[in-house]
């Protein structure tokens, strides 16, 4: 599994960080603007896709392990469940952080405004949890797919002249 040309690698190295930052923006502004946890998580998972396609499996599997994204998935799920149980004294999914003044807890200003980020209580927290979960899941799909291709690649393709489709 050879890496692609130096042009593709340079562009992907530079562009992947901008894609990741935009994805985090979409996740954090999920309660204000279009998009949310799932969309932003899918955008952040494109970071891993760009690196995998440009650098090949051997390098990327040396950089990250699938257990890393497995941990992402578990942290996201547990955060979502914990945020659901935060209002256990009232009801499940009760918005207990709203109007508390702390994290995401300030009140929404009256009248037309550009949107205040520090509002909406547990909704923003759950958006972040879903975002972490989707990043872990989709990156893990890509990594396992690349690992599978890599394992098939070794015994059957060694020593034959036929190249892959991209060469």
């Amino acid at each position: 599994m050879r890496p692609l040309s130096v042009i593709v690698r340079t562009v992907c190295n530079a562009f992947a960080w901008f894609v990741a930052v935009f994805g985090v923006y979409v996740i954090v502004h999920g309660h204000l603007s279009p998009g949310g946890g799932f969309q932003g998580g899918a955008v952040v998972a494109t970071f891993m896709a760009l690196l995998l396609v440009s650098h090949g499996a051997t390098k990327c599997l040396g950089w990250v392990r699938t257990n890393f994204f497995y941990a992402f998935e578990h942290v996201g799920l547990l955060t979502f469940i914990a945020a659901g149980f935060l209002g256990i004294g009232v009801t499940f999914f009760y918005n207990s952080l709203a109007l508390s003044g702390g994290l995401f807890g300030s009140a929404v200003p009256l009248g037309p405004n550009g949107g205040s980020l520090n509002t909406s209580g547990t909704i923003a927290l759950m958006n972040c949890a879903v975002g972490i979960e989707v990043v872990g899941g989709l990156s893990m799909i890509l990594l396992y797919m690349m690992q599978g291709v890599f394992h098939v690649d070794k015994p059957t393709l060694r020593g034959k002249e036929e190249a892959g489709h991209d060469r």
Binding site: M1, G23, V26, P34, G35, F38, Q39, A42, V43, A45, T46, A49, L50, L52, V53, L138, I141, L142, M145, M146, G148, V149, V152, D153, L157, K160, E162, A163, G164, H165, D166
Partner: peptide
């Protein structure tokens, strides 16, 4: 539109390319 651009144009393209690199001509 954001979901379609991220998954359709980003992730599924990457998955297709990964699958194609595992194929032989």
């Amino acid at each position: 539109a954001i979901a379609e651009a991220a998954i359709g144009a980003g992730l599924s393209t990457a998955i297709y390319i990964v699958a194609l690199r595992g194929c032989r001509k």
